[in-house]
């Protein structure tokens, strides 16, 4: 049985300007200990998918229209708040993009670090502090017994992201959701944080969902990748296959537009146009207007994910028809 099983998730935002279908029919499974990368451009629904699982979608304007997200037998989208609290923050933890704004500037990090322990575990403050210091050690913050009493502003960006990771992992979750955790950091610091996540994942045997727009980050870290476009998954497979044999035209185009893969000075491949406006109904394939392989039938038939090789699903009807 998978650790997390999401089926037909639809999260829509009802605003004055119309209904934005941010996530429109997403299904995937995640096994224990697995690392799943979710890749897509801004607005593709990758963050909203995870926010829905974590119950972080502001409602209203957001509404989860349909779907289930079953974690260890409990449907996170339908269970009581009490049941949800037993799981979210304890067995599923999340870290965010911007470590500058996701820590409370008024509280010492000691207070912030032990908060999840005091809520979820029957533990004294003193024991919790000892545990917090061990966690700071584990994420590579030296001199933990002194620095635990610092305020967030006394740390650099990379250090704050380490504190965030320590806070997320202090309850030893089975699943960590990381929403672009290194986007705001410098490359050298990004390298440190990625190494850290990899090491801790092995140590704690966690599953990780890693949301990013950077295909490079995914290639070193993830077992499996799913590519999202306009609120849907367009391709999902193991990392090696995705990079060596991508099938969906969007994945191919995304790869071709990365500078490092191109010979120097060559004109970069570009995807014409822009992502679609999600408040308007989309007929057929959402990528068709920008796709160089599009045919009239792409605008008519609604593409569905189907298996094109073992463990490799993609949603282009021309690939499914064996034409490209």
């Amino acid at each position: 049985m998978p650790l997390l099983s999401v089926k037909d998730l639809r999260t829509w935002f009802h605003t004055r300007n119309g209904t934005y279908r941010a996530v429109d029919g997403v299904s995937f499974n995640l096994e224990a200990g697995e690392t799943l990368g979710i890749v897509g451009e801004s607005g593709s629904g990758k963050s909203v998918t995870c926010y829905s699982i974590m119950g972080l979608v502001p409602q209203p304007p957001g509404r989860i229209e349909s779907g289930t997200a079953v974690f260890d037998g409990v449907d996170l989208l339908r269970c009581t708040p009490k049941e949800a609290r037993q799981i979210r923050g304890k067995r599923i933890a999340m870290i965010f993009q911007d470590p500058m704004t996701s820590l409370n500037p008024y509280l010492r990090i000691s207070d912030q670090l032990i908060e999840p322990l005091l809520i979820h575990n029957e533990i004294s403050r003193k024991q919790a502090l000892t545990r917090a210091m061990e966690m700071l050690d584990a994420v590579g913050i030296n001199d933990a017994s002194k620095r635990i009493h610092y305020f967030p502003h006394e740390f650099s960006g990379g250090m704050r992201q380490r504190v965030m990771i320590a806070m997320a992992l202090i309850t030893q979750p089975e699943l960590l959701i990381a929403d672009e955790p290194t986007t705001a950091l410098d490359v050298t610091v990004q390298a440190q944080i990625l190494e850290l996540i990899k090491r801790l994942q092995k140590e704690f045997n966690m599953a990780v969902i890693f949301i990013t727009h950077d295909l490079g980050v995914v290639s070193g870290l993830c077992d499996r990748v799913q590519v999202m476009y306009a609120g849907r998954i367009v391709e999902t497979t193991d990392t090696r296959t995705l990079f060596h044999k991508p099938r969906h035209p969007y994945t191919r185009a995304l790869q071709q537009s990365i500078p490092s893969l191109q010979p120097k000075g060559a004109r970069l491949f570009t995807i014409p146009g822009m992502p679609p406006d999600l408040s308007k109904p989309i007929s057929g394939c959402a990528f068709a207007p920008r796709c160089s392989f599009a045919r009239p039938k792409c605008m008519e038939r609604d593409p569905q994910l189907s298996e094109c090789a073992v463990g490799h699903m993609q949603a282009c009807i021309r690939v499914q028809d064996g034409e490209i």
């Binding site: 390298a191 290639s219 070193g220 090696r240 990079f243 790869q255």
Partner: peptide, 18 residues
């Protein structure tokens, strides 16, 4: 430190972490 979008290279090379 730059992650390369190639899983084979990415997994085999040694990274200098400052």
């Amino acid at each position: 430190a730059i992650p390369t979008p190639n899983p084979d290279i990415e997994r085999s090379r040694r990274r200098i972490v400052l």
